[in-house]
Design a protein around this nucleic acid. Sequence first.
DNA 1: AATGAATGAGAGTTCATTCAT
DNA 2: CATGAATGAACTCTCATTCAT
Lengths: 210, 210, 210, 210
Amino acid sequence: MQSDTKPRWERRKDARPQELLAAALDLFVDRGYAATRLEDVARRAGVSKGTLYLYFENKEELFKAVVRDNIVAVIGRAEIDVAAADSTSCNELLRAMLRRWWADVASTRASGLAKLMVAEAGNFPEIARFYNEEVISRGHALIGSIVRRGVERGEFMPVDPEMMTRVLTAPVTMLMLWAHSFDPCCGPVDAEAFLDTWLGLVERGMARPV
Amino acid sequence: MQSDTKPRWERRKDARPQELLAAALDLFVDRGYAATRLEDVARRAGVSKGTLYLYFENKEELFKAVVRDNIVAVIGRAEIDVAAADSTSCNELLRAMLRRWWADVASTRASGLAKLMVAEAGNFPEIARFYNEEVISRGHALIGSIVRRGVERGEFMPVDPEMMTRVLTAPVTMLMLWAHSFDPCCGPVDAEAFLDTWLGLVERGMARPV
Amino acid sequence: MQSDTKPRWERRKDARPQELLAAALDLFVDRGYAATRLEDVARRAGVSKGTLYLYFENKEELFKAVVRDNIVAVIGRAEIDVAAADSTSCNELLRAMLRRWWADVASTRASGLAKLMVAEAGNFPEIARFYNEEVISRGHALIGSIVRRGVERGEFMPVDPEMMTRVLTAPVTMLMLWAHSFDPCCGPVDAEAFLDTWLGLVERGMARPV
Amino acid sequence: MQSDTKPRWERRKDARPQELLAAALDLFVDRGYAATRLEDVARRAGVSKGTLYLYFENKEELFKAVVRDNIVAVIGRAEIDVAAADSTSCNELLRAMLRRWWADVASTRASGLAKLMVAEAGNFPEIARFYNEEVISRGHALIGSIVRRGVERGEFMPVDPEMMTRVLTAPVTMLMLWAHSFDPCCGPVDAEAFLDTWLGLVERGMARPV
DNA sequence: AATGAATGAGAGTTCATTCAT
DNA sequence: CATGAATGAACTCTCATTCAT
């Protein structure tokens, strides 16, 4: 369909943003915000420095776009599923959501964004607020609704749903953070075993019944 | 408390490295490694940019010194206490250690080190390994010994001590990280309520006994 | 007025260079050569950036074309009129020419060219020389011929016609320059009042006492 | 007093701003704002690019500083002299001021700023306003006060002082503009002859017949 | 003829590091 | 010891110009 002699623009405008976002995600995640050079992002996406600026206004906007691009769809789908799962036991639903979070986000490259946000929240309060509203709050609301339902139905102990939600999400978040901080240099955590242990604890606690 | 034989400026001189390390810790924690300007560190310590180089070879060495300097002896004391607390119930001991960690480290300025390490471990593998050995591993060993003892004595459910240790420490670690990332711009977490909820869950889980 | 044999887009095509020149004049006048972006010129002319290069080799050539294109035939007509006005009093003729200059050029958009040339003459000596020959010199010759005639006929004081010509044109030129520099941000000058004051001074200062 | 082996900083901090301002004036004047590279300014001042930023926040601030540095003192002194010259004839005073303006500003390198302001007023409305207030308005007020006094005393024809002031300053301003636009490529104007012609015209045109 | 995606040299700006004083 | 002026490499961002479509 096309001669291969001078493929100056092999790819299409439509694909560029995604290619750039993918490249940016990779580099931001493993070098951090400041250490990521836009020229490297461009090169990894197979374009030149200037091209990047056709699609993103500046480095900060690129960063925001990466954050947006890697979190919205996942949360959106999860919200729908939870709303539809009224008949499932809350315990089952909670376990399913936490495992799904792991499978869909935490075990993927996108988990690096969590570390990135922890690292850069101080430098980008605006993005931190954005991430808090679009990711953390929505995630908490999702888990929180399950906890609340479970408490109301008498499936769960009578706990403070807000706090319990933070507690419930913390270990999975830590799994994400380890993956992009200590794991690479101090050996990886066995995530499956960790999750099993964690979900077991959630279900029944540490104390041995007498 | 301090000998008065030395003239004032010499006493100042001895304090310089500590003042610089303190200033550097604050800024590294707030802004991350790359975004921290040495000029700001110097100014905060009340000296000039050039003076900093009399005490630290370069930015990287300063960073390493900050990490090394802030690995305090808290763990050492805790290790002794745990070894001595043979008669205490493991449940009590575990709760005590987690609360103590919170009180002595996580709620203090030193907690910033945790965020710093999570943020920069990828860029400083060597120092991450060092931190892992001196802090994380020792902390895990400490908590792990309690868990193992509890399991052996039949106080705790038969869990994998290694994994359970990671699980047990994760929420408190998250509390430290939040304090230096999202808290400043998205409102603080109520740490006391969080800890209570967390320790409650650890003891008995979510499921309501029938 | 225009043949309808050509289809619409071809008529458009013929108009393109003029549309581009008009857009370029506006922007060059407002922002100067360097600060004018070719993309803005193209957009203002309703075409794409690439199209501009079909008509002009590069930015410099566009600039030169703008200057050349805007050197209108006004002077030519004025030259004829002056030659024909042998019987008019030189004072009347001089006043008429200065007012006409104002009415036909200085008060119109074309006056921007003067500002542009003052601003960019240093960077484009070649085009400055061209402008000098085609506009300034001819304009000076025109006014100069009236002055010389007036002096010869004893209507005017015995002045140096060359110098007096420069003097006579300066205030009207300034009016043109103000219109495209300070007027937009510091409020416009009342041109009519200015001209009246100016011509009054000229009349009293030029006329030979009887 | 000082060995000449390693004269890394030959000049003092105190002298730097002036050296940089002088270099910047030269380059801004003959290349225009945009075409002046800060590296060239620095090199001409004998320092490196970075040093420039120790003294001026950015290019725009440097530009403003150049404008400020080259106009204030002159106008200030003239204001004092005019206020003190109450007994001089207004005609004499006016001629003296115009000649002095020529001698102190218009014939010097600083006159390039007038051209620069005309060229860049559109791009820097803020500086244009500043220049208008600090230079043009003050200059006009100065000349205007002489005109008004002359009219009141019956030395001058009954003219509108505001307008006449603009008229009176226009030719000298044009002299400044020519010097930095057409003169270099089309041959210089004989400023002395021009001024004589101009002042002659002014004298005859302003003086009230007895 | 027209488009607009792509390029890459070039300019402004920052900051770790040096060193004469 | 302490200073802070000076440096220059490195990075972000711009825009004239090209060229496949």
